[in-house]
Design a protein around this nucleic acid. Structure first.
Lengths: 356, 356
DNA sequence: CCTCGATCTGCATGCGCATTCAATGACGCC
DNA sequence: GGCGTCATTGAATGCGCATGCAGATCGAGG
């Protein structure tokens, strides 16, 4: 940069300020405010942060700050306080609507607590760890985590407050806020049995995720207890995407005998399945019962009206935000794991099995 | 060679390092790496940033950094370089699916360029300006902007690179990347006329947004040119939300005579309308034609299959990201305004008006 | 053998803010 | 009137990194 600070004083003259070029204006610093207010820089800091300053001085400083349009630079403050007031949110796929709800609730709660949210897309553990460690953030929420990722432990070792949101890890290294996926998926199984379904299929999520694992486990267990066998040819394990749900259902519809009901491990998959059913002219729920998991906002739309397991994302995200904030503020409590109870929401994509 | 920080040196002893408490570990700094590698701190900086350093030194530094798990602190770097490699994205409502596409494409392109995205929720201009000025970001993309907001000008005055994405301002203060909303909405009008509709309603967006204004203007103009009058009782101007679209359609359905077609200023409104139609037992497109604008991902789902104006969000977001990055890197070109052409996508929510 | 230039590296410093410490002054009390 | 107390403020410093500058080393050319 060819803008050598003027010889002498810290923020003095600054050369001839350029002839006329619409150069990016030198930003206002606390020194400028101090000069205008006739005080020392630290006094500006104190006046603005609520330190011990006389009323008269404070108002003079505030007036000067106002007049110059002074806004403290984050970088300086962060360097001095070792705090950024920024929280990282790691998500696998922003296109997954589920995360919209998460992001919204999470951001909202954090904004209230004076934090900003910075997004991190899923990447390999090493890359992600480096990005998260660069100190740009005070804490992290991981929403897309595989069971055996070493990320939570590594973050813990680096002293970066972390919370798992929605998915959890195989090892209890950090705080977590999750739904009771086993219980939720059991409810689905019970409902299907109750409706008389006996040829039941499923589109499960990835086994290496806690939601994928638990929702499969609860579902299978409950069915087994009811003496109903899963229809093997009508089961798939796929990634949590709309496309995967779509094509999995197409495949499943080809099983013989065709299943009368399909459990989808999340709503994104379920909606993909509904679309596939529509494409194939399969009437839901007359010909096929579809039940999802999550209860995203759109699942209650009239054109979808999906029977699903309600997961209180709002509460989960807010709780995660609060856990994180308390950690960032130095709480040294034991590991916490908050489990939010699920609830079956019956809408119009499920129906009793048809005789014959 | 005084290669170890002498006592009294910057990073010496540091007390007795505590007995055993699992205190948050003191983070590794470039001084630690320097000490381990037996060089001075600046050499570490140069080795890592590709400065002039001998191969032998570089590898020693890299090894030390690796061994300590060193990751440069963003705050320090930002303070020194006046650059954060972070871009702010201001969005009104994260629950609006439209922004998901924007966010995804935008984030992706920026990640490639080495930038992170920090979210800012819409707030009053003053608050937002303060947040954006705190220097945490190198540039801003505004997606939810009202026509007469002073934000673009103020950001410009503060020297913060800014780009308008999707919506634009009444004054050309900063770069913008938008769709040709007038042309797009004209296409809709022409289509409706072509299908024989003569009782046409509309759910417009807020007039104080450029998209709301232009999509209404183009639509009205084209209809007028075709000699077709808008059905006044079947027009509404509402915020861009699903709920607003839903209730607006319910109201419009009560107009008499009922319209045979409704143009919705964006897909979120259109889907709200589709849901309302479904709730009211109105068959789309048999009883009512609905056309939207945006062509969000979900608009092509089989259960929605909305006829709409395709807006290439991906291109728009990527272009905006590129504009922004070039500004941040110091490009001093003239104001740029990129207009992306829209395209009518005909699916299954529109149909010829029924005789009788 | 000396000089010059090219590399490489260390020293000193600044980025903007918060914070510790000491100095100053005001005030009250004996 | 002297002295202690408290409130207020300034001076000095550090946070972690990048960079201008100067010194050192080395090789080549004269």
């Amino acid at each position: 940069m060819a803008q050598s600070p003027a010889p002498g004083g810290r923020r003095a003259a600054k050369g001839k300020a350029g002839g006329s070029a619409p150069q990016r204006a030198r930003p206002v610093t606390s020194y400028d405010v101090a000069a205008l207010a006739g005080v020392a820089q630290p006094t500006v800091s104190r006046a603005l942060r609520g330190g011990s300053v006389s009323e008269e001085t404070r108002s003079r400083v505030l007036a000067a700050a106002e007049r110059l349009g002074y806004v403290p630079r984050d970088a300086g403050r962060s360097l001095a306080t070792q705090r950024t007031h920024r929280i990282g949110l790691v998500v696998a796929d922003l296109r997954n609507f589920f995360y919209l709800g998460v992001l919204t609730a999470f951001e909202q709660r954090l904004a209230e607590a004076g934090f900003q949210v910075t997004l991190f897309r899923e990447a390999d553990d090493a890359t992600l760890l480096a990005r998260l460690s660069s100190g740009g953030i005070d804490g992290v929420a991981l929403t897309s985590l595989t069971l055996h990722s070493s990320l939570p432990r590594e973050l813990r070792e680096r002293g970066i407050p972390t919370v798992l949101l929605n998915r959890e890890s195989a090892h209890p290294d950090v705080d977590a806020c999750v739904s009771d996926n086993i219980r939720g998926s059991r409810m689905v199984a019970e409902r299907l049995v109750e409706l008389g379904h006996r040829r039941i299929g499923a589109i499960f999520g990835p086994a290496e995720t806690s939601t994928g694992r638990d929702r499969a486990r609860g579902f299978r267990d409950a069915l087994a207890e009811a003496g109903v066998a899963l229809h093997p040819a009508a089961c798939r394990e796929v990634p949590y995407t709309h496309e995967a749900g779509h094509s999995a259902l197409v495949e499943i519809l080809g099983a013989s005998p065709a299943p009368t009901a399909v459990f989808c491990a999340n709503d994104v998959l379920a909606i993909g399945a509904l679309n596939a059913a529509k494409a194939r002219g399969v009437d839901v729920p007359r010909d096929l019962t579809v039940i999802g998991y999550d209860d995203m906002d759109m699942s209650s739309w009239e054109i979808i009206d999906l029977t699903t397991v309600h997961q209180d994302i709002d509460t989960m995200a807010r709780t995660a935000a609060e856990l994180l904030v308390s950690r960032v503020e130095g709480a040294d409590e034991d590991l916490r794991r908050v489990v939010v109870p699920p609830r079956l929401v019956i809408r119009s994509t499920d129906a009793p099995v048809r005789a014959g």
